[in-house]
Design a protein around this nucleic acid. Structure first.
Lengths: 128, 128
DNA sequence: GATAAGGGTTCCAGTGACTGGAAGGTCAAG
DNA sequence: CTTGACCTTCCAGTCACTGGAACCCTTATC
């Protein structure tokens, strides 16, 4: 497969696939013309990466997960541990964003949103 | 005030304050020795910026908000509109993260987390 | 055989919002 | 006079791509 074909199958942009090669996540073969040649194994790995990235895992987490994926003797505890840490980070991020949203929502409710200059949102930003 | 004093008062690191000057958010004076000199006006602006960044506004939003803050003839509707858009983005982000967290939480629950290689998390990543 | 469209390649620069570090000037205390 | 804590600028790195330029390869058509 050429890069655009595997890009279609995985949903990843060609640029991203080249980037993943550059950082050593995959190592496609090369044809006589210098084009990258992808096998089903590359397809699986890229799909794996795409899914892991969709779930918000960092590239370094993906690298580790991919190594575990390829290791038949892995312990599922290792995978679970990474996933748990990641979930914790996501939940922290959600809590932060929710706190922002609450504050912002309150300020928006308080703001008339008309032609006059008086604005509780700016007042809040200035007061703290 | 010198930079470390205003850094203490605003809670912003000196590096960040220099960066804000570089991108034109503030323009501190300069002493004869070349040191930055900050006034109360700069203090207010930096505090304003710090608060706005805490609420997750982008630098460009902050630039606009700061301009509105300084404009006595502003319409509060302009501020409210920016805040609303920002809130919408935050809520979208929360929804995305929550979806990730749900999926991940489910996978974690399904994973034994022991010494065996069988792992529903990796299975899921590979299947999609 | 020329040409044009549509692949592919590499390399460099930019994103956002800082942050770290090096190299060097300035200031106050002892 | 020296020490240590400031301050300055400038350059590079972060993360995960993304855009664009310049150039090569393949296939189809005239």
């Amino acid at each position: 497969m050429n890069i655009s074909q595997i890009a279609d199958k995985t949903g990843l942009p060609p640029k991203t696939i080249r980037y993943y090669e550059e950082i050593g996540l995959i190592t496609p073969d090369r044809g006589a013309n210098g084009y990258r040649v992808f096998t089903d194994s590359h397809l699986h790995k890229l799909a794996f990466l795409g899914r892991a990235r969709t779930l918000g895992f960092s590239i370094e987490d993906c690298r580790t997960l991919l190594a575990l994926y390829e290791d038949d003797t892995r312990a599922s505890a290792d995978v679970k541990s990474i996933a748990r840490q990641h979930l914790e980070q996501i939940n922290e991020k959600i809590a932060q964003l929710q706190s922002m949203a609450d504050t912002l929502g309150h300020l928006i409710d308080c703001c008339a949103g008309d032609n006059r200059p008086d604005c509780p949102i700016l007042n809040d930003l200035a007061r703290h």
